[in-house]
Amino acid sequence: MKTDGPVIAYYDALCPLCRREMRHYAKFGPEKIVLSDCNAPDLSEDIDRDAALAALHVRLPDNTVVTGVDAFIAIWERLPRWHMLATLLRPWIIRKPLDAIYRFLAPYRPRQTCRDGVCSTD
């Protein structure tokens, strides 16, 4: 996969785990990854909010959108020290089962919810 240019990661910023992970990746700079909260009102019109909440979505520099484990691989292959993990997980026989596990577990991640201005972690 071509790794020129930054990717845009559409992630759930109401998930503390997701927020922490994406902030770690963002430390590598906007030339590698740009973060976009899929809960924001200005979400790209071609990204379905419910689908983005169900699995990480990443827009590649060529405007293609990948999801799930493919989205993580797209991020990792651009980052120093992470690109080896992307290489190891890219083969179909490894990637497909991992994607199935990710999509099964993703709905159980913690999410911050706000009611009457008071936020808590569910």
Rank of each mutant, 00 (worst) to 15 (best):
M1C: 07
M1T: 09
T3I: 10
G5W: 03
G5M: 01
G5R: 02
I8S: 00
I8L: 07
I8E: 00
I8V: 15
A9C: 04
Y10A: 06
Y10W: 10
Y11M: 02
D12S: 02
D12L: 06
D12E: 05
D12R: 04
A13N: 13
A13F: 13
A13G: 14
A13I: 03
C15N: 03
C15H: 06
L17G: 02
C18N: 13
C18D: 11
R20A: 13
E21F: 14
M22K: 04
H24W: 13
H24Y: 14
A26R: 10
A26F: 07
F28E: 07
P30D: 15
I33E: 00
I33M: 06
V34E: 08
V34N: 02
L35S: 00
D37E: 08
D37F: 07
N39A: 10
N39F: 12
A40G: 10
P41R: 14
D42N: 14
L43Y: 06
S44K: 08
S44M: 10
S44I: 08
S44R: 10
D46K: 02
D48I: 14
D48Q: 12
D48E: 15
D48K: 10
D50I: 10
A51V: 13
A52H: 08
A52S: 09
L53E: 02
A55C: 12
L56C: 04
V58D: 00
R59L: 08
L60E: 00
L60C: 00
P61K: 04
D62F: 05
N63W: 06
N63M: 04
T64W: 01
V65K: 00
V66Y: 11
V66W: 12
V66R: 07
D70G: 01
A71N: 05
A71P: 09
A71D: 08
I73P: 03
I73T: 01
I75M: 03
R78D: 01
R78G: 00
L79A: 03
L79D: 02
L79I: 14
P80E: 05
R81Q: 13
R81Y: 14
W82G: 00
M84N: 08
L85R: 07
L89T: 07
L89S: 04
L89A: 11
L89Q: 02
R90A: 15
P91G: 06
I93E: 01
I93S: 04
I94A: 05
I94F: 12
K96N: 12
K96V: 15
K96P: 09
L98A: 09
L98D: 01
D99G: 10
D99I: 11
D99P: 12
A100T: 11
I101H: 04
I101M: 09
I101D: 02
R103P: 08
F104K: 10
F104D: 02
F104I: 06
L105K: 07
L105N: 05
A106F: 04
P107F: 14
P107C: 11
P107A: 08
Y108F: 15
R109L: 11
R109V: 13
P110L: 12
R111W: 12
R111P: 15
R111L: 11
Q112T: 14
Q112M: 15
T113A: 11
C114G: 10
R115N: 05
D116P: 03
D116S: 15
